[in-house]
Write a protein that binds this DNA or RNA. Structure first.
Lengths: 338, 338
DNA sequence: TTGAAAGCGGTACCAG
DNA sequence: CTGGTACCGCTTTCAA
């Protein structure tokens, strides 16, 4: 009961027959093994392309043990940062001949059921780009010898990680705001879950306070626009003398919401209050927002992340590693200057 | 040269040995074959879970011919609509036990090289959610008996498709604007490539003109915020008596750019000019934009898309099919009412 | 109700 | 430089 519409595909066996050589010779010729004569290689290459031969990656996996498949866990679309990460990851991994299987995309933690799918597909490794993912997935992977690398997240047990220097970023932002004459800051964080957010807040607070500033209020921005918006509304509702003179949101998407709420309440940014964010997503850079932010070195982060993963796939014993990359402050129009 | 860190995984063979039965019995027991006695099934199930047995999906594919893997082509992140689509697709396919391999994510067409990866991984089917993808990929898939379904794109050769009624959406928007007293419309389209955009524009133009309105200008919004922004700037620069009284952008992301540009130029929306979009992405629904839009029935579109794919995987001979779903107009604050 | 054995498409080791 | 062959993990007839 074959599929009549699906013409039988060429395999190494069929090629070997039409070439009159053995399957192993074909296999070697196809992957450029130097032991095969040039002429034979050329002949087989020609035959293969004529026959429209496509290697069966799955069969190769079965015998070689390596699938070339990586698992990807992506954070929620509500933060455009993850969409950027996705594009960059896909672009860079294509160059390396790696493919991604989507394990999870969206809010909430990855389910155990899903993690198991990973194992069924013999993935060589797993890339996690979500800040609030349960560490359970990493555990399951580790237990099965599948290396895990996290991007945009501080390292946890059973995983390597790449992140930008979040504390440093917070500190740079604090300096910038202090120089602009700000002394009363509101912080919009992400509520416990995100280690990134915590580091950014810590770096900010230390420097801001050391410089004579005060953190006058804190809000939970829940890593979403709406969370920032709600915080902005609360800030705008404060009595003018109680109001902070600047806001540090731990991510741009939050800062966008805050800024909109402040404006809707009739406050001018940065005249009445400065707003700053983190990540430097393109949306926050638009003229309509023009938010001062700390840029994460996205391309480099992805590159290092894939490097870490590739190294651990080649050499399973390698210890976990935490890489911190330097980002940089981008001053835009949403913060008052000195 | 084994990997010492990676404990050997349980396989059907190891299970069969510890159970003292044949591999085929284990295989059948595991998938609930009724021919295996209840007691044996229970015993093997227990053994399997004790051993932490995970089936090797790739090995299964090799012998069964079905991988459970689908290919995904995703449009550029610059339009949040694709990120929505991604989350919905992943959520719904997880329920069906289908996994997605990312073939492409981002701007530009999918490369042939990439399409070939598809074939190497024996994907059962392919889902394409990008408006401007080259039809070449669909062709390659078809040639190899891999069914292709396009979501948010009108059908082409060698593929089934699901889309919302784009022309109808344009028509509804035209009616709405006519009722609001608008008679001079600017259209911001996406420049040839997108069949969706063309249908939306056509539906709009026909009804708007039939109702006594005129299309006074057209701009290429290139499906990106910046394209809409540039068009908005051009519109704002027109002499007031030449200026359109409303704008129909063929997607929300374009409308957002246009709206920002109009406001930056000092025009009020909708007092001076109305702005309308298409898709109804959450970003455009925010209070800061509040854009009147035509909502695509995303959940249903994805459901039908996966249905089409699933049906064609089970029965390879099925003819291509085009499904059109009905969306609906969402009137918000960016368009002047009667 | 269960077992034996032949593949699925490649890889890689051992010969020659 | 090339051939023979066992095997990766699972499915699936065909027998018993």
């Amino acid at each position: 009961m074959d599929h009549p519409t699906r013409r039988a595909r060429a395999t190494i066996l069929t090629l070997s027959r039409s070439a009159g050589v053995s399957p192993s010779t074909v296999s070697r010729a196809l992957k450029g093994d130097p032991r095969i004569s040039k002429s034979m290689r050329a002949r087989i290459a020609e035959l293969a392309s004529d026959a429209g031969y496509m290697p069966n990656a799955l069969a190769r996996t079965l015998s070689s043990g390596r699938s070339g498949l990586l698992g990807l866990v992506l954070g929620p679309r509500s933060n455009p940062f993850y969409a950027m990460l996705l594009e960059e990851v896909v672009a860079q991994s294509a160059e390396r001949g790696l493919r991604f299987l989507i394990l999870h995309a969206g809010p909430g933690p990855i389910e155990d059921r899903t993690t198991e799918a990973l194992l069924q597909y013999q993935m060589d490794g797993c890339l996690i780009t979500s800040a609030d993912m349960s560490s359970r997935a990493a555990e399951i992977c580790a237990a099965n010898g599948v290396p895990v690398v996290m991007i945009n997240r501080v390292p946890r047990l059973h995983a390597s990680a790449v992140s930008c220097d979040n504390a440093e970023g917070g500190a740079r932002m604090a300096e910038h705001l202090l120089q602009g004459g700000h002394r009363r800051a509101a912080i919009i964080h992400t509520g416990g879950a995100s280690s990134n957010g915590i580091d950014r807040e810590r770096g900010f607070s230390e420097v801001f306070q050391a410089g004579g500033g005060a953190i006058t209020s804190r809000f939970d921005g829940r890593s979403v626009y709406e969370g920032g918006h709600a915080a902005g509304r609360d800030i705008a509702a404060m009595a003018p003398e109680m109001r902070p003179d600047c806001v540090f949101a731990v991510s741009d998407i939050i800062a966008m919401g805050t800024m909109d709420a402040l404006r809707e309440a009739g406050l001018a940014v940065p005249r009445d209050i400065s707003v700053s964010g983190f990540d430097s997503i393109p949306e926050a850079a638009r003229a309509a927002y023009d938010i001062t932010s700390f840029e994460q070195p996205l391309v480099a982060m992805v590159r290092r992340g894939l490097d870490l993963l590739a190294a651990r796939i080649l050499e399973p014993g390698l210890p976990d590693e935490a890489v911190t990359l330097r980002g940089h402050l981008i001053v835009r129009g949403s913060t008052r200057r000195g």
